[in-house]
Amino acid sequence: MDFNTKVDEQLIYEGKWLHYKFLHFEVNGHKKVWEFVERPPGHRGGVEIIPIIKYKEKPSQLILIANFRPPIRKFCLEFPSGLVDQEGTIEENGLREIKEETGYTAQIRHFQYNGVRIRNDPWKSTENEVSIVVDIDGDSEVNLNPKQQLESDENIIVYKMNMGKTLADEILQLAKEKDYEISGLLWFFALGQQFTN
């Protein structure tokens, strides 16, 4: 059976940022209808940035944000991220997003897994993004007093967290204190820190 064969795609709603569709297909002789959303044609995906701030005299830290997400009507702890503009490379878009959302100036880390395309919710969306790790010089003058450059509809709070086995506990404590939600990508990153030696 060719699972990539589309039987019929039906556009239900066409919004500015999302299209809502029905996919009509057949599995083992049974007709099915699947509801999903996708970005409009021409969309280049998103970029998720894992920003690590490094210092000469103290341990590195992870920068994360609390971003107000209207669908859940709460702030959500997550990595800085954004849609990839039509202009520029994914890396350039990532550096722009980290500057806008946190105020920090970063450099792309030479990391073998930069540029991996990931799917956050393939059961309901065609959404995809690329993850990149960036380094931030915490001792550099340009990063001593970072100033966000948010768009008028953005509400983002910046946090610095300790790397390592305490990260998951720090995230849980902050989420409890502030009544924040936690994004899946950030949480799995924090859990991964539990398995380091």
Rank of each mutant, 00 (worst) to 15 (best):
K21W: 08
E91Q: 05
Y13F: 10
N155S: 12
I49G: 03
Q194N: 11
I132L: 14
K56G: 03
Y13N: 06
K32W: 11
R73Q: 11
L167P: 00
V33N: 12
E14R: 14
P122K: 00
Y13I: 05
D153V: 00
D139K: 10
T5W: 07
S183M: 08
Q10Y: 12
D2K: 14
I72P: 00
I52V: 15
A106P: 01
V47W: 03
V116K: 14
I63G: 07
C76K: 12
F195R: 15
K54A: 08
I118L: 13
Q86G: 01
G82W: 02
N155E: 13
D2V: 06
I63W: 08
Q149M: 14
N162F: 00
I171C: 06
H19S: 05
F189Q: 09
N128R: 12
W17K: 15
L23M: 10
S183A: 15
A190I: 10
K74P: 00
A175G: 04
G94C: 02
L77K: 09
G29C: 09
I108V: 13
D8P: 05
F22S: 11
D135L: 15
P122N: 01
N145Y: 15
N162G: 04
I156S: 01
I65Q: 03
N162L: 00
R119A: 07
A175H: 02
P59G: 01
E87N: 05
K56I: 01
G192F: 03
N197Q: 15
H30Y: 15
L174C: 03
L23Q: 10
L144S: 13
Y20S: 08
Q112C: 08
K32S: 10
E97S: 03
G15Y: 08
S125F: 05
E129Q: 10
F36Y: 15
D179L: 10
S81P: 00
T126E: 10
A66T: 02
Y113A: 11
K99W: 01
D121H: 07
F189N: 08
E97P: 00
E170S: 09
T166S: 07
F195T: 14
K74T: 05
E127I: 00
F189V: 02
A168L: 13
D139T: 05
V27D: 12
I182L: 09
L95R: 05
G88D: 04
E127K: 07
N120F: 01
F189I: 06
I53W: 08
N4V: 06
K165I: 00
Y113D: 09
P80S: 03
A168E: 08
V37P: 01
T166D: 02
N128Y: 14
N67L: 04
S125G: 02
T196P: 06
G82N: 04
M161G: 04
F68N: 01
P70S: 02
A175P: 02
P80I: 02
Y159E: 06
H30Q: 15
K54S: 12
N128K: 11
E170V: 02
A66S: 09
I72Y: 06
Y20T: 10
I182R: 08
F25M: 04
S60W: 00
H30W: 11
R69H: 11
V130C: 09
L83W: 06
E48L: 12
L150Q: 14
K31H: 13
I136S: 06
Y113W: 13
Y20L: 13
L83T: 09
H24S: 07
